[in-house]
């Protein structure tokens, strides 16, 4: 199964604090372990929400909201994509992650939905458009 592991933001990450040399090294080793075990298939870190934007939808109106966003604990500072046998395995891997932040922090593990889960509401046209878009996304 595929799981996304979110690194939740903290005050530090939102202020753009650079990780220490030790953490960079520890995280590198951890990623290496994930790769060597065939678990990690993708991932990236995110810049603070100060550099992000939000679009609020209400009917036909679209409102742009500039970052930073207030509710720090709900923000995301980075993510991995893992392929694991089950959530137990994902948890076991997540527990051995070095603490990604200087202070208390949190990882959130969420199983990924696949296109199959939308099959009921997928028309031929919808499928065609998704195919086109996602292939472009893949660089194919």
């Amino acid at each position: 199964m595929r799981v996304i592991v979110f690194v939740k933001a903290t005050e530090d990450s939102e202020q753009g604090a650079m990780p220490s040399a030790e953490l960079i090294e520890a995280m590198g080793k951890y990623n290496e372990e994930l790769i060597n075990a065939g678990v990690m298939v993708g991932g990236d870190g995110l810049k603070p929400s100060a550099e992000g934007k939000r679009i609020a939808f209400d009917g036909t109106s679209r409102t742009v909201i500039d970052g930073p966003f207030a509710e720090t604990r709900e923000l995301v500072a980075g993510f991995w994509i893992w392929e694991v046998k089950d959530m137990d395995e994902a948890l076991a891997w997540a527990k051995r992650c070095p603490n990604p932040m200087p202070g208390p922090s949190e990882l959130e593990l969420r199983p990924v939905v696949s296109m199959d889960d939308f099959a009921e509401n997928m028309t031929a046209e919808g499928a065609e458009i998704h195919a086109r878009n996602e292939q472009r996304l893949a660089g194919a």
Binding site: R2, V41, G42, I81, S114, M115, D116, M122, G126, A127, E128, I129, H130, A131, E134, Q135, L137, A138, G139, A140
Partner: peptide
């Protein structure tokens, strides 16, 4: 083709 797994395609390429 919308059901093809794009993450795997990207990794494969």
């Amino acid at each position: 083709r919308a059901r093809w797994d794009q993450l795997l395609i990207r990794r494969g390429l």
